[in-house]
Design a protein around this nucleic acid. Sequence first.
DNA 1: GGCGCCGTATACCGATCGTTCTATCTACCC
DNA 2: GGGTAGATAGAACGATCGGTATACGGCGCC
Lengths: 198, 198
Amino acid sequence: MTTTTRPGPRERLLEAARELTYTHGVHVGVDAILSRADVARRSLYQHFGGKDGLIAEMLRTQATADRYRETMDAAGDDPHERVLAVFDELERVTTRPAFRGCRYTAAELALSDLDHPAHAEVRAHKEELHRIFAAELTRHGHPDPEFGADQILVLVDGVLAHAVTRPGAHPALAARVMAETILGPGGTAKPGGTPERG
Amino acid sequence: MTTTTRPGPRERLLEAARELTYTHGVHVGVDAILSRADVARRSLYQHFGGKDGLIAEMLRTQATADRYRETMDAAGDDPHERVLAVFDELERVTTRPAFRGCRYTAAELALSDLDHPAHAEVRAHKEELHRIFAAELTRHGHPDPEFGADQILVLVDGVLAHAVTRPGAHPALAARVMAETILGPGGTAKPGGTPERG
DNA sequence: GGCGCCGTATACCGATCGTTCTATCTACCC
DNA sequence: GGGTAGATAGAACGATCGGTATACGGCGCC
């Protein structure tokens, strides 16, 4: 038959964990994940060794950094527009009804045990984002790409955090203006003074 | 006798909840809070109706906004310095070993039930911060205090979130430079170009 | 054909969760 | 002194937690 074969238990577990941990936090019960994935209890421990392993692997295989790259690539070649496109995308993402913040930040804050394997994945994710933006700023001829990437990450994390805690605030619009300042003059994007809000 | 009388059960519960929820998240067990506060089980439900009520009241009586006011007041009268002092203080706070991020953001992300009474306290806290900074910018003669306060809050939340997820990044230093841009020219604080990082 | 692997299903484990209950004790006010 | 309110101590509730164990079924591979 030609019906698309459904993924194996491992992929189904990762997908279910992706969905449920985002909406309910990393403290979702394994029973909820199992029934959502339609997978036997034993398969979880066979593939991931336990809930902690599943959470960590879910964060590791979450291709979030790729989405940033795709957003910038879709914005073309103009250096300014590429970075600003990230904040335009953040405005779209943070205003979606299902938006619940950054899953990495949420995992970091929720898991008080510092030995939890998820913490390493959170750090790896943020470091990768830093590399992405630092590389971008280097291509722009930014005088201090490392520091500039620090600034952009503060803006990104600030947007993601603030959008959850203060609904209706549209922090991505506020961050976009600051991002323009970081990128400095010389681009094609809105070179003038204070840009309009709307 | 002249010994200082220890606070009543209600205050002890709030203090224990303050400490334990910050280090272990809002999912700490009731038993841990009770033993830490050295309080009978019944007192918790007598005073707060349950764990949810305790968490919400703990957030409500947390005088975090006052600390922002105190930090700015201690910085004197110069409009720029008052706001920049907040980021200097954030640099100190975020580099402390016990730093575990913003308790309001953590509570918001950890409590998936949108009916939880803590969510209202989180929103109230962020709105109060917005009012504080908007009032500050108004006194500065900022052209758009509401939008400027949005920007400062993105920076503050970004610093608090990023400092937890990427240890050693010193996001407060990166945010301080952006805050200077928001405040605009005309102050006494470092009017020149790109300030030094250290 | 028999063996082993993978997945399912389900029962079960001890531990912990938030909550309710009864009982006892203490302090204060009239 | 009696009564009341507030606090303590501790047992017990049902529910859920993450994890383990047992039994069964399908499949390919030698």
